[in-house]
């Protein structure tokens, strides 16, 4: 079988990524799985391993009360943040898709935080309170929320207000993806709808939303993954702390990371099942 020249070009172009993935992702994944099955010591004579089977996985649930606690907090937090981020991204993308002056500048501004706010920078901003809206009186909001909701939910909402700017800053990539999808929509569709008396509101629900639906799934997945991997995520911090913990170490931390990855994977599967493209029965 003759391989097409384009195919070769394709592989060559993704080769740097493939090498990076194999060396910096796949190999550490295998390594961390091996660590997770062992009790690992970092001795001056070298690394020592004692095979413990799946004990570390069991201990993650039985010994670390913070893991379950943080996992629940993360789940609730994510459930609230993802829709906020995706809806915000969609609104901004639609605004940027209008024929306005300095469109390019606005696009740059919205994407800039993705580049600027890398881990350490965003941590500094959060620490210095730059990610909250100063004019919002946190105490008033908190007491209001406490009066309406149970404490666990109120604190999540209050956290949302407290970090609203960070959350919105997480929207750069999603805006870009939505924008690409919006630009692919044939303007004739809108024109035809308008002739038939469709309002802008109806156009949005009948044309825009169905067309960009696949992108919504992609954005939901992207947002969940970026929140799950964020350096500000307390579970990531917990895994790091366990890594250097005297009695737990790399084996335990690796098991925790794998458990976390499985749970995030399960959440991704849920999102996929709910938002996947379903074949219309009419045409099947």
């Amino acid at each position: 079988m003759k391989i097409k020249r384009e195919t070769i070009y394709g592989y060559v172009f993704i080769l740097p990524w493939l090498i990076g993935f194999l060396g910096l992702v796949f190999y550490p994944m295998i390594q961390s799985f091996y660590f997770s099955l062992n009790d690992m010591r970092i001795t001056p004579q070298g690394l020592r391993f004692v095979y413990t089977g799946f004990n570390n996985y069991l201990n993650v649930w039985l010994q670390d009360m913070f893991f379950i606690q943080e996992l629940l907090a993360f789940s609730v937090d994510t459930l609230i943040r993802i829709p906020v981020i995706v809806v915000f991204a969609l609104i901004i993308a639609m605004l940027l898709n209008q024929d306005v002056k300095f469109k390019g500048l606005f696009r740059t501004i919205f994407f800039l935080p993705v580049i600027v706010a890398s881990g350490p920078v965003i941590n500094q901003l959060v620490d210095q309170g730059a990610t909250a809206i100063p004019m919002l009186d946190q105490d008033v909001i908190m007491s209001l929320l406490n009066a309406i909701f149970p404490v666990w939910f109120a604190s999540v909402l209050s956290d949302l207000f407290n970090q609203i700017i960070t959350i919105l800053w997480y929207s750069g990539v999603q805006i870009l993806l939505f924008l690409a999808a919006l630009q692919k929509i044939d303007p004739n569709l809108y024109e035809a709808a308008k002739i038939d008396g469709g309002s802008s509101w109806e156009c949005f629900w009948k044309i825009t939303l169905p067309t960009i639906k696949p992108l919504i799934l992609i954005n939901l997945v992207y947002t969940l993954v970026s929140l799950a991997n964020s350096g500000q995520n307390p579970i990531i911090v917990l895994i790091y702390q366990n890594m250097f913990n005297a009695t737990r170490g790399y084996g335990f931390a690796s098991a925790m990371a794998w458990m976390y990855a499985i749970i995030v994977g399960f959440m991704l599967l849920m999102i996929y099942l709910v938002f996947r493209e379903k074949k219309s029965k009419r045409f099947s």
Partner: peptide
Amino acid sequence: GNLDVAIRNMW
């Protein structure tokens, strides 16, 4: 601080 780090890793 934590002596256990040194003990566990045989330092």
